[in-house]
Nucleic acid binder design. Structure first.
Lengths: 193, 193
DNA sequence: TGTACATCAGTGAACGCGCGTTCACTGATGTAC
DNA sequence: TGTACATCAGTGAACGCGCGTTCACTGATGTAC
């Protein structure tokens, strides 16, 4: 059946949004196209009217997720009292809610190792998204030179992503809490050093 | 054919060692049993004389890798001049050689997100290995109380693992180098704070 | 305004492939006598 | 010391299942006349 104009684009966006959540929580290999489409009350065959392959979707879903994650970081920083920006950023990232919400959380924490394993030729879309995220965040980082601010931004975000990922492996909430708690202090001291 | 005594144990160890490398470099889902066994000039059927399932091997391979990785960390610390222990530890972890050597490198950097996605009931072996690694490392960390040293140990190791994982996603060696370089300074300052 | 045809997002069966696991079999060495 | 049998690590075909992708088909709406 034929659908009204803009219907196709809407479906495409729904696919990206659902994929972005499923890929983060189950990994891209643990999230089959058919399950994804069933979520949206569609069948798997239709997927290929929107994307040439699963790989294309993975890149778009990653981008959407990192955009979202960056928006939250910026919001936290801009709500903070002057001088408390980095504290706010770190608290917004390293907390139990973010830790439990893998599907809605930072895609670097969820998918970085998968990206590192993709063939080099297919990593460019991911790297562009990462670089633009870094450029977006480095403006808020204190530091004498751009180079210093960029280095600290990268170390902070990649470090916090690693900590979050490991915290998520722990089954006991007390453990996760303790890990996040200790790490917040650690990163705050590091950023101000 | 029947094999001499100890032959079986030797084969088992060879499987664990090979698996530990393949899992790190390709992810556990990207490393089929058949390929693993072919590496060792064996066929896939024989695998089940040694392990009840692939999952059992994953846990053992992770343990072996983290033991190895811990040994290297301890060696770096103990070779260091007094006062330079943390610098040595950080330099030993965040360098280009470790970055390129995924198969032989830290299994937390390579596999943490996969562990976090396993069903809670099957994570215990991994968590025990992680906890014992932390206990092993915290003795070397400066800090007033055990709790402080433990928190810093966890934050440092999980953070460096995240940084290494993201660095590995970058296809350009200059980028990887810059990321590792900046992060070394960052973590060194953090540990001494 | 009404009719005939074109479009194309979505359907669902089917294909091809990979992979974890099972199982009947092999055959050199160990053991019982 | 020699012979018959048992053992069991390893073999390789086969099973069952999941998943990415293809493709002929559907049918409501848009368009041409």
């Amino acid at each position: 059946m034929r659908y009204p104009a803009h219907h196709k684009q809407q479906t495409r966006e729904r696919i990206v949004r659902a994929a972005s959540r499923r890929f983060r929580s189950r990994g891209t290999e643990g999230a089959p196209i058919a399950d994804l489409m069933r979520d949206l009350r569609l069948t798997h065959g239709g997927f290929y009217r929107h994307f040439g392959s699963k790989e294309g979707l993975v890149a778009e879903a990653f981008e959407a997720a990192l955009q979202e994650s960056g928006d939250r970081a910026v919001a936290a920083i801009e709500k903070a009292a002057p001088g408390g920006e980095m504290q706010a950023l770190i608290d917004a990232y390293l907390n139990l809610r973010h830790c439990e919400d893998i599907a809605g959380g930072c895609p670097v924490a969820a998918l970085a190792s998968e990206i590192a394993r993709r063939p080099k030729g297919s990593r460019n879309p991911f790297l562009q998204v990462l670089r633009s995220h870094i450029r977006r965040m480095e403006q808020y980082m204190p530091g004498a030179t751009l180079e210093q601010r960029r280095q600290k931004t990268i170390a902070l975000f990649t470090g916090m992503a690693g900590t979050l990922t490991v915290a998520r492996a722990f089954t006991d909430e007390q453990d996760r809490h303790a890990i996040l708690d200790g790490a917040r202090k650690f990163y705050l001291a590091a950023v101000n050093a």
